[in-house]
Design a protein around this nucleic acid. Sequence first.
DNA 1: GAAAGTCCCGTAAACGTTTACGACGTTACA
DNA 2: TGTAACGTCGTAAACGTTTACGGGACTTTC
Lengths: 346, 346
Amino acid sequence: MTGIRELAQRLNLSIGTVSRALNGKPDVNDETRQRVLEAANAMGYVPNQAGRSLRKGATGVVGFMMQTGAQITGEGDVFFMSVFDGVQTVFARHQLDLVALLCSSEEDPDAYMQRVVARGFADALIISATKREDHRIDYLASRNIPFIALGRSQTDVGHPWLDLDFEGMAETGVARLVAKGHRRIGIFAPLDNTNLGFVFIEAYRKALEQRGLPFDPDLIFRAHPNERGGHDIAHAIAAMPPGKQPTGFILTNELMTLGFYNGLYEVGLPPGQKFAVISRDSPQAHFLVPKLTSFRLSLRDLGIALAEALLATMPAYAAHYPLGVVRKIVPLELVDGDSDMPVSTG
Amino acid sequence: MTGIRELAQRLNLSIGTVSRALNGKPDVNDETRQRVLEAANAMGYVPNQAGRSLRKGATGVVGFMMQTGAQITGEGDVFFMSVFDGVQTVFARHQLDLVALLCSSEEDPDAYMQRVVARGFADALIISATKREDHRIDYLASRNIPFIALGRSQTDVGHPWLDLDFEGMAETGVARLVAKGHRRIGIFAPLDNTNLGFVFIEAYRKALEQRGLPFDPDLIFRAHPNERGGHDIAHAIAAMPPGKQPTGFILTNELMTLGFYNGLYEVGLPPGQKFAVISRDSPQAHFLVPKLTSFRLSLRDLGIALAEALLATMPAYAAHYPLGVVRKIVPLELVDGDSDMPVSTG
DNA sequence: GAAAGTCCCGTAAACGTTTACGACGTTACA
DNA sequence: TGTAACGTCGTAAACGTTTACGGGACTTTC
């Protein structure tokens, strides 16, 4: 209960020696270290976080900021839980803990982040859902806090980031659907100003252009990246005049895909029969009928890459990860399914 | 940067006075306090977490433990994000922070919790997905850590808990479906030994018995509480011999409901037309077609109740919440939809 | 056999904050 | 005028840990 002092007393050792023994420092006899380790284990001693981080100036925790109460953002879903798991396998090697810092919907996200940082709650941060212009990036950089972004941004301070290959998905998706005879291809865009929207749409436009197909703004469907958003898009499509409707669709969000499938069934445009769908693979989307033609990505591997790239920028760990400042686009592989039938079938 | 010392120096005050001013202690002149507050604000001073919690013996954070990488548990979904938001509105009144403690799938949950507790990471904990016999409860009670469980358990140490009224849902659900002429009513049960499974099934059995209907174990469908689980149940139902199939179903998980709807469409048993469904309402389930007949519950209110009940057991805050040890079953109201049609329609 | 080196351990300062205690100046009251 | 009370503030100890430094005992080396 009382800590290292009691442990030292029980062993007839000084607290200094005990501390060194526990932390694997060199200046301690092997036999002594063994004794200390056993005793610590026996009485369930775990070093106090406050004392340790006060002295070391580091907490040993990395924070991932996410907002609560916001079905809108699509955060808090399985996507992140899988990424986290990859992050943690790397962190475990260095006794680092990952916690989710939950920003209430009643608090300003920027203010929350400042508070968290200034308090010294975490040694480093992972941010996601990066906006086109993101104040968080400026702030973290100015404060010299190690961090990595899951998602590109126009706000570029030479910080590390990882992002999915949205250009590739747009290009490959369009290519595939065009090859199957589709001429009117719909695409999803987020409602807010996340950077992904711009990148995705721009690549989509370019892919059409290269194939001599017209770019029709009406084929861009804006919605929240969750089940409801996908569902609503399906109904919006059905509400269009027949000639204006797309015959195929590209999206990237797993939750949306579920809602989209649901919606397509409802409006009488069953996927793979009367409407072509291409999206991203995921454990949750895996059971869909018909089988989704999808971009495959290991979220766990993504988490691992994310963690390693972050550690590469932290002085205390950089030696193990000589990667420099990682700024990488993660490619995805298109896997055949039954949801992207030729247009003639419809 | 350097903390309270620099702030005090700049104001020609002692650090003691500055600290008292910032913390709203009485022994400080109003004008002085104002000066301190302004200066602190101006230079963006935020007290260091480690120093503060070392001295106070409290961190000001409450942890919610959840497991990463586990699509199985169904955690990490919108359900919790909404509950969190309610918790935080209460916590905000007391400068308490809520963080999600993420237990890796590679670490034993019990061990993780012990580590977190011993380290003094959080002042209190919220646990969920309580097992029928739950070691976490014993441990937390023995360590005298304030905590509250979202979900009942056989392991009862007189601790506070909140739980949804699963008995009520089973009873009301059966009553409703029977009234509509259904005789074979299916029900969901979790695969693991969460306590909810036992409670739910038992109430279901009793509800049937009271109405002179047979209890058929084949009508209990075990699955993971997520989209896939719901989807698989629909297919399992379709695979039964016609006479054995249920004509209606009761479930309580929002993710499952989405998958269940999807699956029912796939197997040609569209909900509300050929198959009756009753489940729990949720933002995500709200768009379903046909409209779900569902049990309504404000997750935000649930979070608020959870937070208040927790604070009632924490010495430092109990004065504001004279609730005693809260052990409460939260009732849900059945709201009419179009998914529970009479059996004759089918 | 003395000097140098090695191994192991104890001592004590430091991290940033809170808070019990005491000191000082002023006011109030007898 | 003396004493008590009050308001305001400074002083210093304490929280639990890590780590730079130094010292004692022993071994090696010339």
